[in-house]
Write a protein that binds this DNA or RNA. Structure first.
Length: 958
RNA sequence: GCUCCCGUGGUGGAAUUGGUAUACACGCAUGUCUUAGGAACAUGUCCCGCAAGGGGUAGAGGUUCGAGUCCUCUCGGGAGCACCA
C-alpha cells in the first residue's frame, strides 16, 4: 500500500477537475434548482492568509454538499481590486498600482486554486477590468439621471494621511478606518448617493430576511430611525431680535423648531437649546447677539472641526433671548450648547432636565431649573384607588453613613420615614413633622431632593386600593437627640440603622409592596433622579394622570391643531459621499462645463478609462491626482460642445463591491451589467457568508444598490441577500489577532506543504463553530491529519469479495443524516466529528464496495482530494466522486435499532435499559420496576407519577 | 453610559433545543512495538469516595418530575453604538 501523501495527489486532481470543467456552472440545468452561494470577494493584497482559507474553503463544503444534493450551485469568486493599499504599496515599492494589483491577482489566483474549491473561475469578476467598471460608471449615470446621485457642498471627513474624503461609515472613533490617523472636517463639494431615499426600506426590508439578529440590529442602528415630533417654539420680536431684514412676519422663521421623541415631557421644558450651527445661521441673518455668545459660537464650531475631544464636558451659554412654550405659553430662555448637534433633527432641542440625562447634567452645571412632569409608576393602577400625596426621607447619620429604616412589628413591613401631607403644607413642613413623629429625632437637615414616584398598591390596614405620589429627600441627622415617640401611634415601630444594600433588600422583602427602595437607589446613584422612562404625567395641566404613551399622541395632536407641531421621524443615516481624491479607483463619469455645469458622459462612450499616470501621488490641496492627466482632462462639453473638463475624483471602492454579485450571473455581457433573465435565475443570493466588519458598510451599500436598481426596473430582487451569516475570526495560537508584529501569523502555504489542503480545510472546519472562529492550535491539525491517514488505510483494506457489513450499513445510514444536517447548518465542526465517530465505529469492519463509496461520499465535501483519489484509484471508479449524489438516508432503518432508555427516579439517573426502538411505556415501566438497580429506590414507596419520553427515558416520581 | 452576545475539563469544543453533562479531537500519563519519528497501537484522564453513592456547566436564587439549556439578580469576558434629543 502506498503511504498517504497529499502533496502527491492534490495538484493532480486540481488539474483534472479544471481540465474536465466540472465547476463551470450553467445558467440552467433541467430539473435542478439554482442556488448561488456567495462569499465576499478578496482584495488582492498580495498574499493569502489563513482567514482567506476560512472564508472560502469552508463555504466550499456547503457548496459541494448542495451540489451533491441535486442543486445547480454557483460558487463564484473575483477580486475587489481598486483601493488605497495598491497606491500606498506602489509609492513604497515604486511600482505602478495597476502592475502591483495585477501581479497580486495572478499570484493569489494560484494560491486560491490550491484550496481545491469548486469556484467557477469562468465567471471571475475583477473590479479593475474596464468591462466591469464601465457598468459601475453606467449605474452612476443612471442614478444621477434619477436624482439618486448628486453633487453638494458638505462638511466631510478628511483623512490627512490618505488625503481623501471618507464616508461616515469609514470613520471609526474619529479615526480613519484604514490608516488610523485622526480624521478632520473640511467643507468640500462632493458627489453623493442618496441612500436616505431608502431609509425606511433599509429597516423594514430586514423583517423577512434570514440574517443574524446582530447584523440586522447593526443595520437598524445605523439607519437610526426615531419616532417623535417637531415642535415650534415662538420667539417674540423675532424680527427685531434675530432677523431684522425679515419681511414676511408670518414666516415659520419666527419660530425655533425642535425635534423630540418625548413630546409628553413638554411641560417640563425649562429652556430651548440650539446647536452652534443654528446659532451661526442666526448670526448670518442679522442676529445681534452679545460678544460672549458670538465668541462661544465661533469657538465651539472651531472645536468641532478639530473633531471631538476626549473631555466631553458639556459647555453652553445663555443666548439672551426667550422662546414661548406653545403648550402653556410659558416664557423660557434660549441657550446655545455644543452638545446639541447641528446635523441631527432640527439642530435644536427642548431642554427637559428632569427627563433627559444630558439636559440633567447641563442643568446641574449651569444651575438651571428642573421640573418633573413624568413620574415612574410602580404597580398596577386601579380605577377605584384612593389618592394620597406624601413625602418621605432617606435619613442618614454622619457617623457611619447608615440609613434609617422603620420596622412595623405588627405586619413585619419595612419603610423609610415619611407620611401624608396635611392640606396645603409644603414639603419641608410635612417632612419635618413626619420624621420627628416617626423617629423621635429632632436635629436634622433636609438636603438633596431625590425625586417623586407614583406607586399603586393595596393598603391592607385600611382595606383600600391606593395610588400614592411620593416625594423623597435626603435628610442628614445632626445628632441623636430625640424625644419619646407618641405611644399610641407608634408603639409597634422599631428603628434600624443599616447600610444601603441591606436596606434595599429589606424594603423589597415587604409583602404589600411599597417600592421605596427606588429612593435608596436614587440616593446611591444621583443620576437616577433624572427619570428618562415612560410614566404618569404630573404638572402638565389637563394631561395630568395620563401615561406617557397616550400623552405623546394627545399633546402632539393638540400642538398640531394649533399649527405648531407635527409627528415626525428622524434618522441618523446620512447620504453616502462617494468622491475620493485618489488615483486608483473608478473615474466618476461626469464632465464639468463652464456654461452647462455638470453633464454626464454619454453612456455609449463608457468606460471612461483611468488614464495611465506616472505621478499618481495625491496633492495636499484636496485636488485629485487625475487633474494632472491634462490630455485626458480636457474634453468638449457633450451638450454645448464648448471646452470642458472631466471630473477628477474617483469613486469609493465600496461602489465597486455594491453590485459584483449581480455581475456573476452574466459576467461577459457587453450590452448590460447583467441580463434581467440571468439575474432572475440567480438572484436573490441564496446564502451570503462574510465578515462581521461589513455589517454597516458593504451590506448597507449593496442593499441600497439593489433597491435603487430595482426601483429603476433593472433588477428583480429588492433584497439581494436572503440569508446572511457572519463568520468568526481565526486568531493566532496565542488567542490574539494574527499580526506580523506579534509574530503569531499562521501561513496557510506552510501548513498545506506539511499536511495538505484537505487537512487544512478539515482542521479549520473542525476547530469550532463557523460563526465563532477561534485560535489556531498548531497541534490540532495533527488530529485531522491522523484521521485522513486512517481513512486512507481503511479504504485500502477494500477487497472485491467482501459482502456488506450490517454494522456499517446502519452507521453509514445514521451519519448520512447527521452530517447532512451539520453541513446545512454550517456546523462543520460537528460534521467533522461525526465523520470521525463514523470511522471509529466501522474501522474494524470490512465493507463492501458500495459501503466504502458511501463513506467517501460523506467525506468528499470536506476533503475533496483524498476522496477523489481513493474513489478512483482504490475503488476503481471511472467517473469523478464530485459528480455523484449524496447518499440517500433511509428513515425506516432507524426505528428498528436497539437503543438505551434512561431510568430516572425523581429525576436522577439510576439505570439504563437496552430496548428495541418504539417500545411501549407499559413494557418500559415493567422492565424498570424489575430492575435490580431500581428496586431499592422505589421499594415500599408510593409512585406518584411516571413520565415517559418515547425512546429516551422514563422518570419514576415517588 | 446604552444595546446585544457569551461564561461547560489542562486546551478547542459536543449536548438531537427542557431529558445520560463533558461526545469528537488536542494535550497529558502508563504500556506495547520500534535501527528515536513531527510515528503507530492499547489503556486511562471533571472532583470526593475502597465501594455504594455524592458533588459538579462563573456565583446566588427561582420555575419544573427533570435545567448547561427557561426566568431574576450578581460577577467576569467580548462586540456594536455613543452627546442621535
Amino acid at each position: 500500500m502506498v503511504k498517504y501523501s497529499p502533496q502527491k495527489i492534490e495538484k493532480k486532481w486540481q488539474k483534472y477537475w479544471e481540465a474536465k470543467k466540472f465547476y463551470v456552472t450553467k445558467d440552467k440545468v433541467a430539473g435542478k434548482e439554482n442556488k448561488m452561494l456567495l462569499t465576499e470577494f478578496a482584495y488582492p493584497s498580495g498574499n493569502l492568509h489563513i482567514g482567506h482559507w476560512y472564508a472560502f474553503s469552508l463555504p466550499d463544503i456547503k457548496a459541494r454538499y448542495l451540489r451533491m444534493k441535486g442543486y445547480n450551485v454557483l460558487y463564484p469568486t473575483g477580486f475587489d481590486a481598486f483601493g488605497l493599499p495598491a497606491e500606498n504599496a506602489a509609492i513604497k515599492h515604486n511600482i505602478h498600482p495597476e502592475k502591483w494589483t495585477k501581479q497580486n491577482i495572478a499570484y493569489m489566483t494560484r494560491q486560491l486554486k490550491s484550496m481545491g474549491t469548486m469556484f467557477d473561475w469562468s465567471r471571475k469578476v475583477s473590479t479593475i477590468d474596464p468591462d466591469y467598471y464601465a457598468w459601475t460608471q453606467w449605474m452612476f449615470i443612471e442614478f444621477y439621471k434619477k436624482g439618486l446621485a448628486y453633487r453638494a457642498i458638505t462638511n466631510v471627513n478628511w483623512c490627512p494621511n490618505d488625503k481623501t474624503v471618507l464616508a461616515n461609515e469609514q470613520v471609526v472613533d474619529g479615526k480613519c478606518d484604514r490608516c488610523k490617523s485622526e480624521v478632520t472636517q473640511k467643507e468640500l463639494a462632493q458627489w453623493m448617493f442618496k441612500i436616505t431615499e431608502f431609509k425606511d426600506e433599509l429597516i423594514d426590508g430586514l423583517k423577512n430576511l434570514d440574517w443574524q439578529e446582530t447584523a440586522k440590529l447593526g443595520q437598524i442602528n445605523w439607519v437610526g430611525r426615531s419616532q417623535g415630533a417637531t415642535i415650534k417654539f415662538q420667539i417674540p420680536n423675532y424680527k427685531s431680535q434675530i432677523n431684522p431684514n425679515h419681511q414676511n412676519s408670518k414666516s415659520k422663521n419666527e419660530f425655533v423648531e425642535v425635534f423630540t421623541t418625548r413630546p409628553d415631557t413638554i411641560f417640563g421644558a425649562t429652556a430651548i437649546v440650539i446647536s452652534p450651527e443654528i446659532a451661526q445661521k442666526w448670526l448670518s441673518i442679522g442676529w445681534q447677539a452679545s460678544s460672549e455668545v458670538k465668541s462661544y459660537v465661533k469657538k465651539s464650531l472651531a472645536k468641532r472641526e478639530l473633531e471631538r475631544e476626549e473631555a466631553k464636558e458639556k459647555t453652553g451659554i445663555d443666548a439672551g433671548i426667550f422662546a414661548v412654550n406653545p403648550i402653556n405659553n410659558q416664557k423660557i430662555p434660549v441657550w446655545v450648547a455644543d452638545y446639541v448637534l447641528g446635523h441631527y433633527g432640527t439642530g435644536a432641542v427642548m431642554f427637559v432636565p428632569a427627563h433627559d440625562q444630558r439636559d440633567f447634567e447641563f442643568a446641574k452645571k449651569y444651575n438651571l431649573p428642573v421640573k418633573e412632569v413624568v413620574l415612574p409608576e410602580f404597580g398596577q393602577k386601579k380605577p377605584n384607588a384612593i389618592f394620597r400625596d406624601s413625602v418621605a426621607a432617606i435619613v442618614t447619620r454622619s457617623s457611619d453613613d447608615k440609613i434609617l429604616l422603620v420596622l412595623n412589628k405588627k405586619n413585619n413591613e419595612w419603610a423609610i420615614p415619611g407620611g401624608g401631607r396635611d392640606s396645603n403644607d409644603d414639603d419641608v413642613t410635612t417632612l419635618t413633622r413626619e420624621v420627628k413623629e416617626e423617629t423621635g429625632y429632632t436635629d436634622f437637615e433636609i438636603k438633596e431632593y431625590l425625586g417623586q414616584i407614583s406607586t399603586n398598591f393595596f393598603a391592607s390596614a385600611r382595606n383600600v386600593e391606593r395610588t400614592k405620589f411620593q416625594k423623597a429627600y435626603h435628610v442628614i441627622l445632626k445628632n441623636e437627640n430625640s424625644i419619646p415617640l407618641k405611644p399610641d401611634a407608634h408603639e409597634d415601630m422599631e428603628l434600624h440603622w443599616m447600610n444601603a444594600q441591606e436596606s434595599i433588600k429589606k424594603l423589597d422583602s415587604n409583602t404589600s409592596i411599597s417600592y421605596e427602595s427606588e429612593f435608596v437607589k436614587r440616593f446611591l446613584q444621583p443620576s437616577l433622579v433624572c427619570f428618562s422612562g415612560n410614566g404618569v404625567l404630573v404638572n402638565s395641566g389637563k394631561f395630568d394622570g395620563m401615561d406617557s404613551q397616550l400623552a405623546k399622541k394627545k399633546i402632539v395632536e393638540e400642538l398640531k391643531s394649533k399649527g405648531v407641531g407635527n409627528f415626525q421621524k428622524t434618522y441618523r443615516l446620512r447620504d453616502w459621499i462617494l468622491s475620493r481624491q485618489r488615483y486608483w479607483g473608478v473615474p466618476i463619469p461626469m464632465i464639468h462645463c463652464p456654461a452647462c455645469g455638470y453633464v454626464p458622459v454619454s453612456q455609449k462612450e463608457l468606460p471612461v478609462k483611468l488614464p495611465p499616470l506616472k505621478d499618481f501621488k495625491p496633492a495636499d490641496d484636496g485636488r485629485s491626482p487625475l487633474a494632472k492627466a491634462t490630455k485626458w482632462l480636457n474634453v468638449t462639453c457633450p451638450t454645448c460642445k464648448g471646452p470642458a473638463q472631466r471630473e477628477t475624483d474617483t469613486m469609493d471602492t465600496f461602489v465597486d463591491s455594491s453590485w459584483y454579485f449581480m455581475r456573476y450571473t452574466d459576467p461577459k455581457n457587453k450590452k448590460a451589467f447583467a441580463s434581467k433573465e440571468k439575474m432572475k435565475q440567480w438572484l436573490p443570493v441564496f446564502s451570503y457568508l462574510g465578515g462581521a466588519e461589513h455589517t454597516t458598510m458593504h451590506l448597507l451599500y449593496a442593499r441600497f444598490f439593489a433597491k435603487a436598481l430595482h426601483k429603476l426596473g433593472y433588477v428583480n430582487a429588492s433584497e439581494p441577500f436572503l440569508n446572511r451569516r457572519n463568520r468568526g475570526i481565526i486568531l493566532g495560537p496565542d488567542n490574539q489577532k494574527m499580526s506580523k508584529s506579534r509574530g503569531n501569523v499562521v501561513d496557510p502555504d506552510q501548513e498545506v506543504k506539511k499536511y495538505g489542503a484537505d487537512a487544512v480545510r478539515m482542521y479549520l472546519a473542525f476547530m469550532g463553530p463557523y460563526l465563532h472562529g477561534g485560535p489556531w492550535n498548531p497541534g490540532g491539525i495533527t488530529g485531522v491529519y491522523r484521521f485522513l491517514n486512517r481513512v486512507w488505510n481503511f479504504v485500502h483494506t477494500y477487497d472485491v469479495k467482501v459482502k456488506p457489513s450490517s454494522v456499517a450499513a446502519s452507521a453509514l445510514n445514521n451519519y448520512t443524516h447527521k452530517i447532512g444536517i451539520d453541513i446545512g447548518d454550517l456546523s462543520f465542526n460537528t460534521g467533522v466529528s461525526n465523520l470521525m465517530k463514523l470511522l471509529n465505529e466501522i474501522e474494524s469492519h470490512h465493507l463492501s464496495k458500495q459501503q466504502y463509496e458511501t463513506f467517501l461520499k460523506l467525506l468528499a465535501p470536506f476533503a475533496p482530494h483524498v476522496a477523489e483519489e481513493l474513489w478512483q484509484s482504490v475503488l476503481k471508479n471511472k467517473k469523478s466522486i464530485h459528480l455523484q449524489t449524496w447518499p440517500v438516508f433511509d428513515k425506516t432503518l432507524v426505528g428498528s435499532e436497539k437503543l438505551w432508555i434512561m431510568v430516572q427516579v425523581n429525576g436522577k439517573v439510576r439505570d439504563k435499559l437496552e430496548v428495541a426502538g418504539g417500545v411501549s411505556q407499559k413494557d418500559v415501566e415493567k422492565m424498570a420496576e424489575e430492575s435490580a438497580k431500581i428496586k431499592p429506590w422505589i421499594e415500599g414507596k408510593q409512585v406518584r407519577k411516571i413520565i415517559f419520553v418515547p425512546n429516551k427515558l422514563i422518570n419514576i416520581v415517588i
